[in-house]
Design a protein around this nucleic acid. Structure first.
Lengths: 230, 230
DNA sequence: GTCTATACTTAGATAGAC
DNA sequence: GTCTATCTAAGTATAGAC
């Protein structure tokens, strides 16, 4: 059922491609899920686009749901690595003093908001200027993905705990329960950026520029910092 | 295809029940969607539970998607009526002066957070103390409902515009673009309460009490008010 | 106008050939 | 390791009973 760790000789160049097919499917799924959503992508359309057989997805990933989870996992891994790196840098720069709340929030918010995926167009709308494909993918995946998907995202909190601890040190007088609630609301503000994107567009009549990532990061950091510090 | 406004004599008591079946389906769908999510409820399970024929849903609502939308519409209608009523009361109480930001936010946040649905258990966990079934339904419906569902929620902003205007009067020095962004983040904080519910539970190790509606309302109002006012 | 039995269509999963 | 053929489940459509 699940994939095995062992592999045959990867140097062969003929038809059975092994790992190549797997990666090809992941990249194709990634791109198509962003565009059409999870349920909008049928296995038949996906495998046709990737140029592989219908059954290849089941062979490599088991189910369509498992494929989605794998795409998410691959993306979130790099996001969380970057978050950890940024937090570490901020803490190192602050020396013995706790870092500023704003700097901690930046380390938390910037990586997902700037993230793009591995696929083709990564170069055309890279980190500067374009909107985050990753956030769009997660929003869509949570939107109409399987229940497992939500559970996975919601329970994947270990990397967030380090940020809660950092904020706790920066706001030593704030009771822990208050801090956790406010942290939760701050994450809600972050997710709202792409999750309810069209609502802002509708409310503002298009006046709010959703494409300016730098300005958006500033705004959400300001908002969350104010709410956290009371 | 769509339902007609005209109805036959409603006094008849025999088998063709007309409107009754429609309501029965709505109530059953409402309860089951909350428990199992949209895609977790098959038409066959739903109609079996309601004791109606499989095709009855198609007859009364057209499609499964349309049924979900109707359940949502029925719920959101009463929420938005209550919101408008509360805003009106707050503005009347303030006289000629603009109301306090907190009071406006309360009028916006309380109705959805207190809302329960029409179905059976409404009495057992009424408005005081229990958690909002409506918010859970919306979270799940957005979660794995059809794309239309998201579009409907996101675009249904006319009732929100009155709140933006009220906040604009309460915060006359805040540029409109800033206000809209912050309002958007505030809505994100509200939605986070039930949307990413399990994350807070996981982060706090169960220490944050999600069942205390009054306390939760206070918290999210405080957070949003701080963020809005800078 | 309302409901039911039944058939149709699509899509994900799987077994076995190669 | 890959692909074809097939199975099952689920949403939808329709014809006809009442």
């Amino acid at each position: 059922m699940t994939r095995h760790g062992a592999m045959p000789d990867p140097a062969r160049k003929d038809s059975p491609r092994g790992e190549e097919t797997r990666t090809l499917i992941l990249d194709t799924a990634e791109a198509m899920f962003v565009e059409r959503g999870y349920s909008g992508v049928t296995m038949r359309a996906l495998t046709a686009e990737a140029g592989v057989n219908l059954a290849a997805v089941n062979y490599h990933f088991g189910t369509k749901d498992a494929l989605l989870l794998e795409v998410f996992r691959r993306g979130s891994l790099s996001i969380n690595r970057e978050r950890a790196r940024r937090l570490h840098a901020v803490e190192a720069a602050a020396g013995n003093r706790p870092p500023a709340v704003r700097d901690i929030l930046r380390a938390l918010f910037e990586p997902p908001l700037r993230a793009t995926f591995h696929s083709r167009r990564a170069s055309s709308e890279g980190s500067a200027g374009g909107s985050s494909i990753y956030m769009q993918f997660v929003a869509r995946a949570v939107l109409d993905g399987p229940p497992q998907m939500r559970a996975l995202i919601e329970r994947d909190v270990t990397h967030l705990e380090r940020f809660v601890e950092a904020l706790s040190r920066a706001l030593p007088d704030l009771p822990r329960e208050d801090l956790l609630w406010r942290f939760h609301f701050a994450m809600g503000a972050l997710h709202s950026i792409y999750h309810d994107l069209r609502r802002l567009d509708a409310l503002s009549g298009g006046a709010c520029d959703l494409g300016d990532v730098d300005a958006t990061i500033d705004r959400v950091v300001d908002f969350a910092a104010a709410g956290l510090q009371d």
